[in-house]
């Protein structure tokens, strides 16, 4: 497939650029790709990297899942129900632009320094991104679709199932795409404290020890994690939104 080839080509170009930059810079702070590859392979072989990759993946996925499960239904309702929209929009308007990362101290006080705080912070930040996109998408559904389903005699729940959700799904998936980037970035942040596991920890720890090859192993693994989540989402989109590809 052309697309796969293009992605592979882009990966090669990026690796070459990295290599060139590493050689040109000649600094310990930017090792060459093959050094990182060897280190990554060794860590994968002895299983240590897999552990961290797994725990980071779980944290990111749990955060995104928690956000989706709450933001999508709420966003759809706020967007589609006039009264709810009027009442809740001001709160969203005020709360959305707050940099939620700064709530970390509060979250730790409330939920401790365990797993849940990490997941919660990821979820909180992604929640608002998905909420706002979903609400706007639901608000902008064309009136014709409502008329059409009304003439077929649908209950409100059926309107959600057959019109509101499918009409907004492409936008929700776009929001999720953006959220993956955010989630991985926040993942790094939450794994840089009060834990000894996860890719974020590896990165911070290697950095502290000035072990730059290990540092880049961690970074590569994190990039790979984000990339895999992206691919997964692409798959999902092609399954769920066949109709958008037909135009």
């Amino acid at each position: 497939m052309g697309r796969k080839r293009d992605i592979a080509l882009a990966a090669v170009v990026l690796l070459v650029l990295w290599e060139v930059a590493a050689l040109a810079l000649g600094s310990m702070a930017l090792p060459q790709p093959w050094q990182v590859a060897v280190d990554t392979a060794r860590r994968l072989a002895d299983g240590s990297l897999l552990d961290d990759l797994a725990i980071s993946t779980l944290r990111a996925l749990a955060g995104i899942a928690l956000a989706l499960a709450t933001a999508v239904p709420l966003g759809l309702m706020v967007g589609a129900e006039e009264g709810l929209r009027r009442r809740l929009s001001p709160y969203i308007y005020l709360l959305y632009p707050v940099p939620h990362v700064v709530l970390l101290p509060l979250i730790i006080i409330l939920f401790g320094i365990g797993e849940f705080s990490k997941i919660f912070l990821i979820a909180l930040i992604v929640f608002f991104q998905i909420l706002v996109t979903t609400r706007d998408a639901a608000k902008n559904i064309h009136r014709n679709y409502y008329l059409a389903i009304e003439t077929l005699g649908a209950s409100r729940l059926q309107v959600y199932r057959h019109v509101i959700l499918p009409a907004t799904l492409p936008k929700i998936l776009t929001a999720m795409r953006i959220s993956i980037g955010t989630a991985v970035a926040i993942l790094f942040f939450v794994e840089s404290f009060a834990t000894t596991r996860g890719l974020g920890y590896i990165i911070m720890d290697s950095w502290g020890r000035a072990d730059y090859v290990a540092l880049y192993s961690g970074i590569s693994a994190m990039a790979a994690l984000g990339f895999c989540l992206y691919l997964l989402l692409d798959r999902l989109e092609r399954r769920l939104c066949l109709w958008t590809l037909s135009h």
Binding site: N144, L147, A148, I149, L152, G153, P166, L169, C241, W243
Partner: peptide, 22 residues
């Protein structure tokens, strides 16, 4: 409806059967 009011996210068969499904 004047502009047909079909749901672009449903196939032709799903559109036609929707009233019965509901």
């Amino acid at each position: 409806l004047q502009n047909y009011g079909l749901f672009p996210w449903k196939t032709v068969a799903e559109n036609v059967g929707l009233g019965l499904v509901l």
